[in-house]
């Protein structure tokens, strides 16, 4: 193999993937990176501490908006010119639709959201959710060029190392998209980052009414964590913003602790909680599938269990025995 190119519209993901590629250099060849868009030079400078030997920089106006066709054009030219055999892309929303566009331009195979990434011999083997999240499809891309979009949190968080890597200004052709971004606005209700939270209280349809939300918010506060939810509570009832929704079409989380309350445990949801270290489930139905996904289960009415659990947690904190005060996250 003749080298890896790393790209993401999210810099921290690019750093993580760059460090991963650098660690596999003996098998995969030289790690390189591309930084595109606004403030590209400055961001490329920050990228130098993560192992890429060359960092291609492009801040042409045509890629400022990071539209898929314009970005794919630049990356395709880099792949061809640098004889790249593996492209690793951060699987953000943009990355997920960029990767197959680039793959098609290069007649390459593509994995668009790998949640497992590893080497088996000299092959990159990926895992992705399949059959609606019921299974994990382990696969390898057998075209000469491989395009792999990697989900956040799949590889280890990179720590900056020695600063190296040459910055190279992209001199090739940049074709602007026929499309244009005409407006950007913040998503309503965006106030939290479920994907990075260490403790989560995830509530499902067992919650009878929106007025009962303080019950779970209190537990989250006592744990020093955040409230998350299943799809119905966000999409159907609108009780919580979609940024708090966990599942195949929402957030994937990897907290130390997830307390799942009144959640039946449909696979479309549980696919998003598999990264949790420890899962506690509270549900009235002994046969609920969520218990198969849990480390600890309490079969009971959330309206009885949750207040008691919250009170006991607060009591521990009040008692102060070997306790660190933990504040709710912003």
């Amino acid at each position: 193999m003749s080298g890896v190119l790393v790209y993401s519209d999210r810099d921290d993901l690019a750093h993580d993937l760059s460090a991963w590629a650098a660690a596999q250099r003996e098998v995969l060849g030289e790690p390189t990176a591309a930084v595109l868009g606004a403030r590209a030079a400055e961001r490329a400078e920050a990228c130098r501490a993560y192992g890429a030997v060359r960092i291609h920089v492009c801040d042409a106006p045509a890629v400022t908006d990071l539209l898929d066709d314009a970005v794919a054009g630049v990356l395709a030219e880099l792949v061809t010119r640098e004889q790249i055999s593996v492209v690793l892309i951060g699987a953000t929303r943009r990355g997920r639709s960029l990767a197959p566009r680039l793959a098609q331009m290069l007649e390459a195979g593509c994995v668009s959201e790998a949640v497992e990434l590893g080497l088996e011999g000299r092959r990159i083997v990926t895992g992705r959710y399949s059959l609606g999240g019921n299974t994990i499809s382990r696969e390898w891309v057998r075209t000469p060029i491989q395009i792999i979009a990697v989900a956040p949190g799949t590889v280890e968080r990179a720590v900056p190392g020695a600063v190296g890597g040459d910055l190279i200004t992209f001199e090739g052709q940049v074709n602007a998209s026929r499309a244009a971004v005409i407006e950007r606005r913040d998503k309503p209700g965006l106030e939290t980052n479920i994907a990075d939270s260490e403790r989560l209280v995830c509530v499902g349809r067992g919650l009878a009414s929106e007025e009962d939300l303080p019950l779970v918010q209190d537990l989250a506060e006592a744990l020093g964590g955040e409230v998350a939810c299943t799809r119905p509570l966000s999409y159907e009832y609108g009780w919580l913003p979609e940024e708090r929704m966990i599942g195949i079409s929402g957030q994937k989380c990897s907290p130390k602790l997830l307390v799942s309350i009144g959640v039946s445990g449909q696979v479309q949801h549980t696919v998003g909680i598999q990264g949790a270290k420890t899962i506690v489930a509270i549900n009235t139905e002994k046969g609920a599938p969520i218990f198969k996904q849990a480390d600890y289960g309490i079969v009971g009415d959330m309206y009885e269990v949750v207040p008691l659990l919250t009170a006991r947690l607060r009591g521990r904190r009040g008692g102060g025995a070997a306790m660190k005060a933990s504040q709710p996250q912003e």
Partner: peptide, 21 residues
């Protein structure tokens, strides 16, 4: 002509404690 070869497609092996209190 498939560009991606599937090695396996299985439900994840259960690794949770499944301890009902």
């Amino acid at each position: 002509e498939a560009q991606v070869e599937v090695l396996s497609n299985l439900a994840p092996a259960g690794s949770r404690k499944n301890q009902i209190l």
